[in-house]
């Protein structure tokens, strides 16, 4: 059953169409990645799904509730971890969590054990009594995650969860996000403009560019849709049989010869490679070099848009936000 469903969701700001007839479907308990360059419409979409903005056209249901007509029901079933750091620096981690619990009407008797549980889950149990001022960037972001979980939401929205984090903290954050999905059994909807983040983290992704969805599916299928992987084989000696030999395999779609190198376009590269090796060994052909080139989401993006994901020109507000954000991250 789909837990998030949108039909032709559209939002305009004056003449600018920020989100253009977006139709999405997110399954329960999956990590759904919403990938696109800055300014593509990711945050506007999240704002509509979390009731912060009203759509101009189209509809969206979250956990069975309409985001416009049943906004309050939607609000109590979702958690949002916004791009900005919204935890209060002057308060301790615990005080921040208690405030969040009161805002979501979680009774104190239930809030206390829940806070302990989520802080433990996100590795913040020891820092609970410290002022947030003393937290590192990664810890602040994790506290945001913990706060978003306090009322047992069915869907957790993460807007650019690893923006501004360094590489190691980012990898740790990915582990935490996977752990949330597995242990809390919730659906996670995350936006990102990092290819590798969408690729390693998401069960399924949608790619958005210039307000429109350009592709949707599992990272695997999307990459497969490019027509498969590339395998390059360099034998010691030129052998006229190689071409026919390899082309006879069912998953090999094309074999090209260029100098010493044979370039194969294949389906399911990782499974096809052993079969190719087997065939070659059976025919006593000696190989100098083999390489498997797997397509990336970047190539998927390139295929659909003719460009690679690039940093969009940022407005004054964005630049200001980013600077302040980085300052806060540094603590």
């Amino acid at each position: 059953m789909a837990i998030i469903e949108t039909h032709d969701l559209t939002r305009r700001f004056g003449d600018l169409v920020a989100v253009d007839h977006v139709s999405l479907s997110v399954e329960e308990k999956e990590i759904f990645g919403f990938l696109g360059p800055n300014g593509a419409g990711k945050t506007t979409t999240i704002n509509m799904l979390t009731t912060l903005l009203r759509p101009n056209e189209g509809s969206a249901q979250v956990a069975g509730f309409d985001v416009v007509k049943e906004a309050n029901e939607v609000r109590s079933t979702i958690g949002l971890v916004p791009q900005e750091l919204t935890v209060d620096e002057d308060l301790t981690g615990m005080e921040n969590m208690l405030l969040q619990a009161r805002l979501y009407h979680v009774p104190m008797s239930k809030a206390k054990p829940r806070i302990t549980e989520v802080l433990e889950l996100l590795g913040l149990a020891n820092a609970a009594k410290r002022k947030v001022e003393t937290y590192s960037g990664g810890m602040r972001k994790r506290l945001e995650l913990a706060a978003g979980l306090i009322h047992y939401p069915k869907v957790l929205f993460l807007d650019e969860p690893t923006l501004g984090l360094d590489v190691q903290t980012r990898a740790a954050m990915w582990d935490y996000i996977r752990k949330l999905r597995d242990e809390q059994k919730i659906t996670i909807f995350l936006t990102t403009h990092y290819m590798e983040e969408a690729d390693t983290l998401s069960d399924r992704i949608a790619i958005i560019d210039h307000a429109k969805i350009i592709a949707q599916g599992t990272p695997y299928d999307l990459k497969e849709s490019l027509g498969g992987d590339i395998i390059e084989i360099t034998p010691f000696e030129k052998n006229k049989n190689i071409k026919e030999l390899l082309a006879s395999l069912p998953t090999v779609k094309e074999v090209k010869n260029k100098g010493d190198v044979y370039r194969l376009k294949v389906m399911h590269g990782e499974e096809t490679l052993p079969k190719i090796m087997e065939k070659i060994c059976q025919n006593n052909i000696k190989i100098r070099r083999v390489s498997l080139i797997e397509p990336t989401l970047d190539q998927v993006f390139l295929e659909f848009t003719g460009r690679t994901i690039r940093e969009m020109e940022s407005g004054r507000e964005d630049v200001w936000k980013m600077r302040r954000y980085l300052r806060r991250m540094r603590g």
Binding site: T50, T51, L52, N72, R75, S76, I78, L80, P82, Q83, E84, L85, T86, D88, L103, Y104, H105, R324
Partner: peptide, 14 residues
């Protein structure tokens, strides 16, 4: 509004 805290309040069921 600037720090995004307002958004946090607006997505809460209050």
């Amino acid at each position: 509004r600037r720090f995004g805290f307002l958004n946090k309040l607006l997505v809460a069921p209050i």
